[in-house]
Amino acid sequence: MNIFRLLGDLSHLASIFILLHKIRTTKSCAGISFRSQALYVLVYLTRYLDLLWGPWLLYNTVMKLFFIGSSVYVLYLMKFDYKPSHDMGLDNFKVEYLIGGSFVMALLFNLAFTFDEVMWSFSLWLESVAILPQLFLLQRTGEAETITTHYIFALGAYRALYIPNWLYRWVMEGRVEFIAVFAGIIQTIVYADFFYVYFTKVIQGQKFELPA
């Protein structure tokens, strides 16, 4: 554990609390992509298969269960409690390509050609692009509630903070996991445009609006 990893995980936790807070206070999931949320459920379920056989480190296990539980809970809220506020028509990014592409990448790049290793690699590639339906929805609506942008920022910052963590571990422990690092860099690049608008507008107190 180092400061970058810890801050990354805290940022990930914060993103989920911000999302739940947004849904609860506005009583609406408008502007939130159901498709991205569903992809995160798939990411956590395939990443954390090792919950079935351990080893169960307390910190990791609590976090894994929380990520699975909260993402399923968000899907439930969107599907039932706040269904009418869901932007069904606009939230239509073709996730089949993201899932298919990630699966191909997992078949090509994995630590061993076994079910759990292919699923683990799949989860990393899928996570790297899982935000795309959300960013696509943002693009189509052209603007977003400030709290929604805070959610997306915290979620993006989490993986961005893992990059210095990997550099630190590479230097200090001599270990590096290329699949995780490469997918993590792709993930952070996917957020680049969003980060730019977030820093130049939202942080300055302006509304998140994309140029027409």
């Binding site: 990443r47 990791n60 290793e117 963590n165 571990r169 422990e173 590096v176 996991e177 995780a180």
Partner: peptide
């Protein structure tokens, strides 16, 4: 494989 960096991360 358990010792791979990514395996003890989230």
């Amino acid at each position: 494989r358990q010792e791979a960096t990514g395996k003890d991360e989230l």
